[in-house]
Design a protein around this nucleic acid. Structure first.
Lengths: 352, 352
DNA sequence: TTGTAGGCGTTATCAT
DNA sequence: ATGATAACGCCTACAA
């Protein structure tokens, strides 16, 4: 007498706002819940007839699987957590983050993964949020948006053996999933480009050394000089303590007010370049300069700034792809992806 | 003999990567799972002694509640879904969205709510994602980032009677949670400001009428004229078909090439203003102009653009607050919040 | 091919 | 104050 058992909800349903469950579909279709579950998962050994009946019942009742229950049973939420870093102002002035987020969403949405995000104010808070995501069981994997030297987030994730991917090349990244541009190569290209224009005394303005991106771009610069037979001049290498406009301004001012000869500038970030341009303007000097990241402002400066497009959307997409494939247990042939960059020639260099 | 029952997982635990459950804590503490649950929830009728014992056990085992199981039992995920709209390029060039997201995250994180997001390519896709969020049961409520005329997302959410909040004032918004600036007042202020500078022939460049923000700003403009005893001139009111720079350019060109006299411009968006400035430059004309939204570029144009700061972070924070309070069943005294704006005077108007 | 039963980890009701 | 038990909705051996 299944009909009068206590769990015969369909007939007794009073609260209409509650979602339809697999049991109710089963009841209407006259089969067992497991059969319905099998139909949902396209289990091969199910007869066409019952499949049809069950599908009709599902349609009639407007059944939709409850993802939470599913997650509990599968111990997988099909959700990825994004840890937005503490770069406070950067977050707003630079479209990098939202573009990368969009890239991640493109791949994830196509593969039925959900996305969670949180903003953090400090590296400690980042770790706190990661811990929280892991402990609560909300996410299957995590995306980090930056790789620092001695990165606490990475250390923590490794210790917990939790799946993650980094946008940016971590140190000791051998066993880590990451995506990045080839920052060595990109800056190599920028430097070579300036050398080919005929400049010899090329200054480099970078951000803090704790970021891999800084060390790599510096390397690219040095390698290019070497390859062209130019020797490095430490007075031309300025390491700022941030990627801000102010830092760029100070670095450029320092060079201009020193006796060092400069003919061109490679900046590791557009904002450093903006600051440098400001310093030059103040002294009524105009030197060729190239930035990095193709920030919107770069095409509206006067003169417009030559820069390098690092393709953040693609970085995000590849990050999501790496992580999701590894979550699915797919054998991925490589643990990291290099996304190509593109030098955009604008006013600050085109005329030379 | 509880010790040798089949579910005595603690003693038999082989797989160490599996998370600790309430049962294992109970076993170690020598109490029942329900007691542990009560300790977790600070249930008043629990003895200090057992509370202590249980807490020790939790600490020792590094227990953390499983949020998914909790959600299933509570039929609430404490998660909010954000529907990022289809404004493709806008998303990247304007920090509005990420700032609003940050605002939402501030309030949500403080109240232990999680955030999910998705990007959509069209209004249809937005509805699809909303449907998905609701049907799957992943989210308790939804945040919309824009309010269109005849908004399909809002209609769908209302039909499903699902909790949501809108950033932007919807039409027929009486029974809807929303936050917005007072767009009428803001543009009223801008217009009055220009009138006080002595200008009479003030042009208005707006985006499409389908957006409430457009209609409201237009209203503010008209009301200000009326209040100052100026009569409206339809030739000075340009309604663009987007908020883009190109649209602003075309509108301004149209005015400048017509016989109409213009003395100043109020633009409903910075990008419209950027376009207008470009059109003026081409004709070697410089008229006072005010934009909207305080986009980063506005302070780097030459001349720098006067604009209105709409405080997107606060908009986001208030949106989250409204939604979460209503989810918690708190009686909220108002169903909407008005966030103040601030006119920022820069080069395009300061000198007059 | 289909059904039964137990489990995923937590909460809540009802006893005691 | 504490424990047993049955949900929450779905999945999956195992049985038939």
């Amino acid at each position: 007498m299944a009909g009068d058992r206590a769990d015969s909800r369909l007939s007794k349903r009073l609260i209409l706002t509650m979602a339809i469950t697999i049991k109710e579909v089963a009841e209407l279709a006259g089969v067992s819940p497991s059969t319905v579950s099998r139909v949902i998962h396209d289990n091969p050994k199910i007869s066409e007839d019952t499949k049809k009946i069950v599908n009709q019942a599902m349609k009639k009742l407007k059944y939709h699987p409850n993802a939470v229950a599913r997650s509990l049973a599968n111990s997988s939420t099909k959700t990825i957590g994004l840890i937005l870093p503490n770069s406070s102002d950067d977050l707003f002035t630079r479209p990098f983050f939202i573009e990368a987020m969009r890239g991640i969403s493109i791949y994830s949405q196509n593969n039925n993964y959900n996305l969670m995000y949180c903003f953090s104010k400090s590296e400690e808070e980042e770790v706190k949020f990661i811990r929280n995501y892991i402990n609560s069981g909300w996410v299957d994997g995590i995306v980090l948006f930056t790789a620092r030297k001695d990165d606490k987030c990475i250390a923590f994730l490794q210790e917990r053996e939790f799946p993650f991917v980094v946008i940016g090349q971590p140190e000791n990244g051998d066993n880590i999933l990451w995506v990045d541009n080839d920052n060595v190569q990109s800056m190599y290209n920028v430097t070579s480009y300036l050398v080919e224009k005929g400049f010899r005394e090329i200054a480099l303005i970078t951000g803090p050394e704790q970021f891999a991106v800084t060390r790599n771009r510096k390397n690219g610069y040095l390698q290019a000089l070497k390859a062209r037979g130019l020797k490095k001049n430490m007075n031309l290498i300025l390491t700022g303590d941030s990627f801000s406009e102010e830092t760029g301004y100070n670095c450029m001012k320092e060079i201009l007010e020193s006796p060092v000869k400069v003919e061109a500038i490679a900046a590791a970030d557009d904002f450093l370049a903006f600051g440098a341009m400001k310093a030059m303007k103040e002294k009524d000097i105009e030197l060729p300069i190239v930035g990095f990241n193709n920030s919107p402002r770069s095409s509206f400066q006067s003169p417009t700034l030559s820069t390098v497009d690092i393709n953040p959307v693609l970085l995000g997409q590849n990050a999501a792809e790496l992580l999701i494939k590894s979550l699915k247990g797919k054998l991925i042939p490589f643990k990291n992806v290099i996304v190509g960059t593109r030098l955009i020639e604008r006013d600050t260099t085109a005329k030379y």
